[in-house]
C-alpha cells in the first residue's frame, strides 16, 4: 500500500507537471483539489487518463471519479479495490 501511494505521488507530479513539488511534500491525507495541491477540473481529467493509462481503470463520468480523488490515500484504496474486484 505504501509503495502504491509513493508511486501515485510520482505519477501525479509527472502527469500534472508539478515541477516544484516533491513526492515527500504531498501528504497522504491532504485534499488534492481546492486547497491542498490546488488542482482543478482539467487536472481531474488528467488523473482520469492517468488511471486508465497506468492502472487500466476506465472512468466514464467525472462524478464517478470525484470521490476517489479526495486524497492520495483514498485514491490508493480505490485502485486497490478495483484491482481485487
Amino acid at each position: 500500500m505504501e509503495s502504491l501511494t509513493k508511486e501515485l505521488k510520482v505519477r501525479i507530479i509527472e502527469t500534472l507537471r508539478l515541477e516544484d513539488i516533491t513526492p515527500g511534500q504531498i501528504d497522504d491525507d491532504a485534499p488534492l483539489f481546492g486547497t491542498g495541491l490546488g488542482l482543478d477540473s482539467i487536472d481531474a481529467l488528467e488523473l482520469v487518463a492517468m488511471l486508465e493509462n497506468s492502472y487500466g481503470i476506465v472512468i466514464k463520468d467525472l462524478e464517478e471519479g470525484r470521490p476517489a480523488f479526495q486524497s492520495i490515500r483514498v485514491l490508493a484504496n480505490f485502485i486497490q479495490a478495483k484491482r481485487t474486484s
Partner: peptide, 10 residues
C-alpha cells in the same frame, strides 16, 4: 488510441 491526454487536447 489508448493513453489520452486531455489537457494537451484542450
Amino acid at each position: 488510441g489508448r493513453a489520452p491526454m486531455p489537457s494537451r487536447f484542450s
